[in-house]
Write a protein that binds this DNA or RNA. Structure first.
Lengths: 216, 216
DNA sequence: ACTTGGATTTCTGTATACAATTTCATTGCG
DNA sequence: CGCAATGAAATTGTATACAGAAATCCAAGT
């Protein structure tokens, strides 16, 4: 349990939302949550307020908070920004790469190779996250890394859908290879472009995603 | 007053921080704030929690919240991300420009011209903000516009310092002219580059800013 | 059957109470 | 003179109480 109940609850509820237990549109009754976690309403409210500030839930005065339902258009916009920031992270990483970062990226890439080879989509999902985080860290910009990680987490449910698409797993992995090459070669512009494309909102790939969102 | 006391307090305290009444490092005692605003500690806490989630203050469990003091390095990183997002907004605006957005940008630009001509730095500061917001809106990406506006607000105190720099006001205005030309011509790549440069973290300009932060 | 009006219940917003922890000052010792 | 220990005061975290707004329900009328 975290250092105080409010933060712990924030994490619990956030997980419940991101893992789709609390679906978009679900009303979050403070008393129900308080009972479920065996605490009073006060820390529940504090957790909800934090989630509201992040944009994960909507807090309407005098009415229950509800899990926000992102319209496909907005998901698209978020991927668009994500692509831009990932591209920036990649280009900075290519310029500022040092030995530790190089090792971290390479080892994350190896783990991706293993899980991709095994066809283990869940494991790949996790390793992929680590790979991207290694690139954020290599950018040497803490703020950028935080923003990227936050968006990454926020878009997690939609990325999951993306990975289910036919062949996405092996495609993703081969894209990683090219990205690593560019970063290790110090080619910042190529790294940027490849990462932007990798986040993948161009053309048909995103239409597929939108279709899966609509079909959910 | 807002719809509930918590939100109102959040805005009040946020303003006090951004206007530098509550300086970085200041301890925010809940009881002191409650007395000052004539309310109980409960809504004060809720306001603080929201500001903590935004990153404006730091909430350390069992100790007072304090106004965050951004290290120069982090300010630099934030400007770096801001430049990237402004660039994206500009390039999208160039591609997606419609008649209403064109008019909004042009009129904001006119107002900038007036205040720049009058040498009114405070007025220009406000009009400049509107000019940038018009570009965000023209990007037709609500999410991007929100992110830009948020960062813009967060960096407000540092932008103010920037404007005080010698000749910055007229330089800024002539940069606007070039940006508008690129956007109106539909030249997305030029718009992106000009806006990135306009946010201005390259070379000596940013060193000046860092110097002013350190000298504050 | 469907709507409308009002009573009733439920739930949120704020205040207050109390326990637990931190902070601060004071005292005692090296 | 500096530093550690101890105790009091201040401050935070959580629970609870209560008032007021919203949601719900039910009955009467069209």
């Amino acid at each position: 349990m975290s250092e105080n109940v409010g933060r712990w609850l924030r994490d619990e509820i956030e997980n419940a939302i991101l893992s789709n237990e609390f679906r978009p549109g679900t009303r979050l009754d403070e008393m129900v949550l308080a009972n479920r976690f065996g605490v009073s309403r006060t820390p529940v409210r504090e957790a909800l307020i934090q989630l509201g500030a992040i944009g994960l839930i909507e807090i309407r005065p005098r009415r229950s908070a509800v899990v926000v339902d992102l319209p496909p258009r907005r998901v698209y916009e978020m991927f668009e920004v994500m692509a831009e920031l990932e591209g920036l992270a990649g280009s900075l990483a290519a310029r500022r790469l040092d030995d530790d970062s190089r090792k971290a990226i390479a080892s994350a890439h190896d783990r991706c190779e293993r899980s991709a080879g095994a066809g283990d989509s869940d494991a790949y999902y996790y390793d992929n996250e680590e790979f991207h985080k290694a690139i954020y860290a290599a950018s040497r910009s803490d703020y950028l890394a935080e923003q990227c990680a936050q968006l990454h987490r926020r878009l997690r449910p939609y990325r999951r859908l993306q990975l289910r698409v036919h062949n996405r797993l092996s495609t993703s992995f081969s894209e990683h290879r090219a990205i690593i090459e560019a970063i290790f070669a110090g080619d910042s512009e190529t790294a940027r472009k490849l990462l932007q494309a990798h986040v993948g909102i161009q053309g048909e790939r995103f239409s597929d995603l939108v279709a899966s969102i609509a079909a959910r």
